[in-house]
């Protein structure tokens, strides 16, 4: 079941229903028109209680921007968000807990949403091309959980990882090539935390976003796509003989 959303000069976007453990998830698939794709890319977005939908500026821009670069991309709403099935997080108990601790008790279970979305994309596009996961904000935690549970993306990109709030151990320790786009003046993570932690992260390239609207990158989305594209092209160049 899919529905054509947009057809730009370069890319096509379709709304799709992703069959997932938590119920069907709503997603948008974007891919280049009339040219073969160069890889598969899934975006894991911010926290549902902080406006984390697939329409978030970073999530949407990365998915569409990378599709224009030749990738087949999938962005999706976590369970209970937008048209995705599952209980909404917006009940009084969850909101109270989030107000106090910035956490909701079962939020990390969203890792299965990411797993299922990635699996769905890989089943759809059996090209065996690399699978890249781009995680933004809370999405980094979701990604870290998936890696802990044996998730196997080929490349990961962490945008504004929430180091002060979440334990991103598995993300840090995976030997999968990683790009971290860290934001200066990020309300969610102090620069010192990133500076202290990142040197020990395995196989990681870090780039700092200075004066790019802190955690939110509003108006700087093309810069994100540019950094990701450069990183992926470099990896490809390194890999080719």
């Amino acid at each position: 079941m899919s529905q054509l959303l947009e057809q730009n000069v370069d890319t096509v976007s379709e709304s799709v229903a992703i069959v997932a453990t938590a119920g069907n998830l709503a997603g948008v698939l974007s891919y280049p028109q009339d040219r073969p794709t160069i890889g598969r890319l899934v975006v894991a977005g911010p926290h549902p209680l902080l406006g984390g939908t697939m329409e978030n500026n970073v999530v949407r821009a990365v998915a569409e921007g990378m599709a224009a670069q030749g990738w087949i991309t999938l962005r999706f709403d976590y369970r209970g968000v937008g048209n995705s099935e599952g209980p909404s997080m917006c009940d009084a108990e969850a909101m109270q807990s989030f107000w106090k601790t910035s956490e909701v008790h079962d939020e990390c279970e969203r890792w299965t949403d990411l797993r299922d979305a990635s699996r769905w994309l890989c089943e759809l596009d059996e090209s065996m091309q690399p699978l890249v996961v781009v995680a933004y904000s809370f999405g980094n935690w979701v990604l870290s959980h998936w890696l802990e549970q044996n998730g196997k993306p080929d490349v990961v990109v962490g945008i504004a990882p929430t180091l002060d709030q979440h334990d991103l151990k598995s993300l840090a320790q995976t030997s999968v090539p990683k790009l971290v786009l860290a934001a200066e003046a990020d309300f969610a993570t102090r620069a010192e935390s990133i500076q202290a932690a990142l040197p020990s992260w395995k196989n990681t390239k870090t780039e700092w976003a200075t004066d790019r609207d802190g955690h939110f990158f509003r108006g700087h989305e093309p810069w994100l796509c540019q950094r990701i594209t450069n990183f992926l092209s470099d990896l490809q160049a390194e890999a080719s003989p």
Partner: peptide, 30 residues
């Protein structure tokens, strides 16, 4: 338009405590 989406689209600005602002946006959104 959700308050958070308006913020992501730069149609709303939050001055002061950003984290509290985002959480209040969640509450007003509800």
């Amino acid at each position: 338009l959700s308050p958070q989406q308006a913020f992501f689209e730069r149609r709303v600005e939050i001055a002061g405590d950003i984290e509290m602002g985002l959480k209040l946006a969640m509450i007003f959104g509800q």
